[in-house]
Design a protein around this nucleic acid. Structure first.
Length: 562
RNA sequence: GCGCCUGUAGCUCAGUGGAUAGAGCGUCGGCCUCCGGAGCCGAAAGCGUAGGUUCGAUUCCUAUCAGGCGUACCA
């Protein structure tokens, strides 16, 4: 357990004991102790910790909260003296505020320093196997800004959950089957014939992007015009296979540039080939949930909490995307994951309930499948909304974004906002004023600290052994504010993991950076009294470690120099 | 029509069933003898609207208004 959690645990025990004692003494009446919290007050003046127990007991005990608080406080630390608590006060509506002794805070620093680079990590998740699937864009084009947001959120969430003790795997689902792929093939064929001088009409809902013209040109460069004499469906198949490979390579490369690496690239086609998709239909038949209407096969989703039945196999005998998706998620569970997390664009939200009820009907707990819906990114350029459409070919690619603003700024920018806020991405701002991006502020703090540590080393000042550092010398308000924030990191990582909210880490590290800069402006590190210098150097080192940890979780570099 | 997400400072966004709602940008005013001024300190300014639950609501519930996205034998 980390310093804060441990402290909270003991404070809670202390209060529970006090409540029991008050009841035994006949002073307080309650059946069961409510589940109260020990929280960190927003206001420093309200102490280091606050408990809401008295307020929650008011109804049962039929007493005013402040009166109850007085009874509880009177019982506290009667039998055994407090270890870290300096004093306890009652405030506001009945809060019990704990004020800790000064060395409680600095002992926390020693604890954090001792943990080294592992500081912030915990075993909260107890190794639960979690699959995080994100991006999964169709391999019919390049990645755009929406995918960039999904990648930043998904990868950071995976990092954070890992740090919180979950066994996480990252997965990309490749939609390499189905109607969009057929459509893709038609577009490729048309471009191919056009490139070779034929007058052919381009499919109306085809992929208009310039990139597929490039792909076709690439093909012609190496393979020439030999497909002119090949049967159309075979021609399309060859072109599609070639293009999918190209596109997938490009996607993989772009994601690598973005700092995202997957454990698994899962092909939809393999589910069709292995019969897993057909098996889904059998599963529902066995469960008595299969309907046959108008030549199609349906899953009776209306019997599982949905509005209406859903088509599994079309009248033409081809399974729908939905059926493949069910087979896919079933496959994930079969691979031993006890929790599936998908990051989807908000435009897919209609699919969530359907997929959940489909999994429920197969006997899996619907709660084990979580979908994080990410609101769409609107792109602004020259003050105008740019519609992003893959088919129309009007989108900014991830690679272009990375060229314009760089990986660090891009990732931080996307993960700063919560997934369910709509986001306007001002391209001009990102290009022209990228220096305003908060990521530099945080990185600057890291570089500054490194600079101090380097100079200390140059001056021959070595950090002394942790056990000999007198952290009690850290008494300045800015030092203690910084310290308090640092100690919150393990909690912050767990909270971000539990709430599936990577943006919390971005907010945290910005606060941390600000507190460091304030400390830096007030307290000199180098050239002060030797003992104080040691304490401050250690504070710096732990701060840099915490900043670096956060940035690593967000996929952002923590530079020593800028 | 129905469903999901969102309305918080001029702008972009955090935030919590609790005690004085925060940050960045922008605006205004201060701080460079000294460890990196990509910095620090200060000021003005806000919970869409109306009800309800609660000791306490910006947070939960209902209604309403506004924006976004869905509502396919597309994915």
């Amino acid at each position: 357990m980390n310093w804060l959690a441990e402290t909270r645990f003991y404070l809670k025990q202390d209060l529970q004991a006090a409540a029991e004692a008050a009841r035994s003494a006949g002073l307080l009446n309650f059946e069961e102790l409510p589940d109260f919290v020990i929280e960190r007050p927003r206001e420093k003046a309200h102490g280091d910790f606050a408990a809401n127990l008295a307020m929650l007991l008011a109804r049962q005990a039929k007493m005013a909260p402040r009166k109850i608080a007085e009874l509880l406080v009177a019982q506290l630390y009667q039998d055994k003296p407090a270890v870290w608590v300096e004093r306890v006060e009652i405030a506001g509506a009945g809060f019990i505020n704990f004020y800790m002794k000064p060395d409680w805070l600095t002992s926390g620093l020693a604890d954090a320093a001792q943990r080294g680079t592992a500081f912030g990590e915990s075993d909260f998740g107890q190794g639960e196997r979690v699959n995080v699937e994100f991006v999964s864009a169709n391999p019919t084009g390049e990645l755009h800004l929406g995918n960039a947001r999904g990648a930043a959120i998904g990868d950071s969430l995976a990092n954070i959950m890992q740090a919180a003790g979950f066994a996480v795997e990252r997965e990309y689902y490749i939609n390499d089957a189905g109607k969009q792929i057929e459509n893709f093939g038609l577009s490729l064929e048309a471009r191919y014939l056009q490139q070779l001088g034929q007058e052919v009409e381009f499919p109306e809902d085809g992929y208009h992007g310039e990139d597929i013209v490039e792909t076709v040109k690439n093909y012609i460069e190496t393979e020439g015009d030999k497909l002119l004499t090949v049967q159309p469906d075979l021609r399309r198949e060859i072109l599609t296979r070639f293009a999918l490979q190209k596109k997938l390579d490009a996607i993989r490369t772009a994601l690598l540039h973005y700092g995202v690496e997957y454990d698994t690239w899962f092909s939809e086609q393999t589910l069709h080939d292995s019969g897993a998709v057909k098996q889904v239909v059998t599963d529902y038949k066995d469960a008595g949930l299969l309907l046959e209407q108008e030549d199609a096969l349906w899953f009776a989703a209306d019997k599982c909490g949905c509005d209406k039945p859903e088509v599994l196999v079309r009248a033409n005998g081809i399974p729908t995307y939905y059926t493949a998706d069910i087979a896919y998620h079933k496959n994930k569970f079969e691979r031993g994951f006890s929790r599936l997390i998908n990051i989807w664009g908000a435009d897919h939200h209609g699919h969530v309930a359907r997929l959940k009820s489909a999994m429920g009907a197969l006997g899996y707990s619907e709660d084990k499948l979580e979908v994080i819906l990410m609101q769409l990114v609107r792109l602004f350029s020259n003050g105008e909304i740019m519609r992003m459409s893959k088919r129309a070919g009007t989108y900014v690619t991830l690679e272009e974004l990375l060229e314009e603003v760089g990986r660090d700024a891009a990732r931080f920018f996307f993960v700063m906002r919560s997934a369910d806020s709509q986001m306007d991405f001002d391209l001009d701002l990102a290009k022209s004023q990228s220096m305003d991006n908060p990521v530099y502020y945080v990185q600057y703090a890291h570089a500054r600290i490194n600079s101090i540590l380097m100079q200390a080393a140059e001056q021959g000042v070595e950090l002394v052994d942790l056990a000999t550092v007198n952290f009690a010398l850290l008494v300045d308000e800015t030092e203690r504010d910084l310290l308090r924030k640092i100690l919150e990191l393990p909690d912050e990582i767990v909270a971000a993991a539990v709430q599936r909210a990577p943006h919390k880490i971005a907010a945290y590290v910005m606060d941390l950076g600000a507190l460091f800069h304030s400390f830096y402006a007030v307290c000199r590190v180098l050239g002060v009294d030797a003992d104080l210098q040691q304490a401050r150097l250690w504070l710096c080192r732990v701060t840099a470690g915490a900043v670096a940890k956060c940035l690593q979780l967000l996929g952002v570099s923590a530079p020593d120099k800028m």
